[in-house]
Nucleic acid binder design. Sequence first.
DNA 1: ACCCGATGTGGATACGTTTTCATGCATCTC
DNA 2: GAGATGCATGAAAACGTATCCACATCGGGT
Lengths: 332, 332
Amino acid sequence: MSMRRTTIKDVAEAAGVGVATVSRVLSGGSASPETRERVLTVAAQLDYRPSALGRNLRQQRSGGIGLLLPDITDTFYGRLADGVLACARSAGEPVILGATGDDEEREGELIGMLVEQGVDRVIAVPSGEGEIWAPTLRAGLTTVFAHRSAGGRDEVPSVLADDRAGVRTAIDYLTGLGHRRIAYLGGPGQSQRLTAFRQALGPLVDEELIVLARGTRDSAYAAAAGLFQHRPDLTAVLAGGNLLGEAAVLAARELDVRVPRDLSLIMFDDVPWAELCSPPLTVIAQPARDIGYRAAELVLRAGGRRPRGVLLPTELIVRGSCGPRGSSRSPR
Amino acid sequence: MSMRRTTIKDVAEAAGVGVATVSRVLSGGSASPETRERVLTVAAQLDYRPSALGRNLRQQRSGGIGLLLPDITDTFYGRLADGVLACARSAGEPVILGATGDDEEREGELIGMLVEQGVDRVIAVPSGEGEIWAPTLRAGLTTVFAHRSAGGRDEVPSVLADDRAGVRTAIDYLTGLGHRRIAYLGGPGQSQRLTAFRQALGPLVDEELIVLARGTRDSAYAAAAGLFQHRPDLTAVLAGGNLLGEAAVLAARELDVRVPRDLSLIMFDDVPWAELCSPPLTVIAQPARDIGYRAAELVLRAGGRRPRGVLLPTELIVRGSCGPRGSSRSPR
DNA sequence: ACCCGATGTGGATACGTTTTCATGCATCTC
DNA sequence: GAGATGCATGAAAACGTATCCACATCGGGT
């Protein structure tokens, strides 16, 4: 009833050769044409599939590539994951997914699990400053950071969107419309964007208009609502992520702040619903899928090389959520 | 420089026992209290982590669980995946993710890859009627279907949302508002919902008002736009998924069909942006995360048992996209 | 006092693969 | 023609673990 999987031994026997030869033929090693032919036909005939288990044990690594994301529910990371999957599939490599929830401890546990599984190639959106990565990195784990680079760990190549340029064009656009009091709604692990914001705004920057939220919807909403209530004089907001943008739209509606008349809104990340909003949201589009794909490429063809990171362009997509500075909302 | 991982042998040596004993202690087998103690402390001291590679090869299976989804970009599947991840993490099991794109061939390839990896437990949203699953199923793969059940394969337990009830309440709601010409926008692999729609509508059903799209945004938009243009007399639409709903909103806006005045719209699946739409979308919420979690539970504690499937409740969330039947749009 | 069962233990084996090494054979070089 | 060189090949080892089996020890029952 339950028959054993056909192994390399069966193939060798059926083909009348040694197992070594079969292994060589299937791994692209050298073999005489007739032997190769025979082995291949026999293997096909027996529907032989090499067991990854045996191979992994032998070469002390499980081919797969690990993917650690803060939240697979976020469409941005969904698209990123999709890119990774696409590239991995074309390479025939399995992808092991883990959700860190932007929590360093959980991230550490997941890394441990990956190592235990013999995974030696990881793509990650690092949660903290990357201290957790130090020991594993030293142990020889091929790592590529995506979307965020971890502070100190600049030995890890990273695939990033050009946040600096994105923020700059957004700010230029807003100041060009006459805005001066511009707020920034930030999420976790985006120091890059935050400094770019400060830099782009220059002397106009108002530290009180910079609000950071944690990764959850509630936290984002609280941050947005608090900001709007506390500073009715602001006329424009840059949301550093689709979650923040969603919160901003929601809070604005709740507090009767009209967009774009009372408030101009730009959101990082172009999501499908940005067009469905009313008004449609002006966004800074990030090539999420490409980020994932490129990261996978990097981690796959890193043959001991330590490739330089990649910076992908962003694009300002102007829709309807920004307008010229009108009369700022009247303080109550 | 590069030192070998500590193996079970090292632990055995350091503890002065045999490898078998160490293995037993760590696997919860029987051992004398003092031996157990000693082994555990030594193991902790050496920071020993059992290699999944060796274990997998030995017991001819790689603990992990496979997860096959049509599209990880879709927030519904994102939430589903999140549920699976949550459950798997609490069990310490890795999750191997694959995106089928609702394509049977790709699904087959992915199954093959999983089997090759030694994965023997799979959660899948099956693409077709499930014929591809027959051989693998017979080979002893523990499988649970999520969100969809495959036609013939009723030997596979499945975790589903109660589509029938969801469709019924939606239709009841719409007919209660006076609607008679109700259209259905369907996606791939949802025969369940479609038949429920026909059944709930009874004699009112108009086959011309049933439109099926493929899984892509373009296809969904084309279906919606085509439907609206072709049949200006319809007054309500049930979209069988968030992608279809998105397309419907977009097409309606493009064609100057006002919601809910000209057209009432109900969408399957409650997504965050449903509230951001104007008007906010009335939806049939599905417990996507629970579906994933329950499926993972099923597939994890299936100790040879073949558990019965699970049916999870849906909920009609009334927002602002449905209204009483007004004057239908005037045919031009 | 003897036997028997229960219990704890360690040696040995097997899992399927890749890779090293030695062997045999054919071809080339001087 | 003898030695050197190259190539195809198979036997064997190794990867780290779980489990089978044999053995020893101990306690209790007859």
